[in-house]
Simulated assay, not measured.
Amino acid sequence: MMAFTNLTNRKISVLGGGWLGYPLAQELKAFGADVNIATRSKQRLDTYNQLTGFLVDIENLTDDVNAFLNSDVLVVNITNKNIAAFKALIDKIEDSPIKQVIFISSTSVYPDNNSVISESDGLELIEHPLYQIESLFKQSDAFVTTIIRFSGLIGYERHPGRFFRNGKVIKNAQAKVNLIHRDDCLPIICQVINDDIWSEDFNVCSDTHPNKKEFYTYAAQSLGVTPAACEPTDVVAFKVIDNNKIKHRLNYRFIYPDVMAIDFSQDLC
Results as ranks from 00 to 15, higher is better:
E231W: 03
I147K: 08
E200H: 14
S151D: 14
R10L: 01
C185A: 04
N203P: 07
D263Q: 10
S120G: 04
D95V: 01
P210H: 11
D195M: 01
K81Y: 02
K42G: 05
C230R: 04
E27C: 00
T107D: 10
R40S: 11
D46G: 14
N9C: 01
L7Y: 05
F137G: 12
D183L: 04
P187F: 00
N114R: 09
T52K: 15
L223P: 09
Q139M: 12
A237Y: 04
D258N: 13
S118R: 10
V192S: 09
T107P: 06
H159K: 04
E214L: 03
R249P: 03
I262S: 10
S71C: 08
L186N: 01
K29T: 12
N194D: 15
T107M: 05
L20C: 13
E94A: 15
I197P: 06
D46N: 14
N36F: 01
I189P: 04
L268W: 11
Q221E: 15
G167E: 02
F68Y: 13
K138D: 07
T146V: 04
M2L: 03
I83C: 02
D196M: 04
D258R: 06
G32H: 03
I90M: 05
K176W: 00
H128F: 09
L130A: 13
N243K: 04
I104L: 15
Q139Y: 00
C230G: 05
W198Q: 10
D46P: 01
N113V: 09
R10W: 00
I117Y: 03
N60D: 13
T5G: 02
P160A: 08
S140V: 11
D184G: 12
L45W: 02
S96P: 10
T52C: 08
A142F: 09
Y252L: 03
A237R: 11
N66H: 11
V240P: 06
F264E: 13
V35Q: 02
A237S: 11
F86K: 07
S41V: 14
K212C: 12
G32P: 08
L55A: 09
D184A: 11
Y131E: 08
I98G: 13
A3F: 01
E127L: 05
I37M: 06
A173F: 13
C230L: 03
F103L: 14
I147D: 11
S265L: 01
V240L: 06
G21M: 07
D184R: 06
K92H: 05
A261D: 11
N9V: 00
F31K: 08
D141F: 02
F137D: 13
W198N: 14
N49F: 01
D63Y: 02
Y156T: 09
F137T: 12
I246K: 07
N77D: 15
Y110C: 06
D242F: 04
P227E: 12
L45H: 14
V116A: 07
L51F: 08
L223M: 14
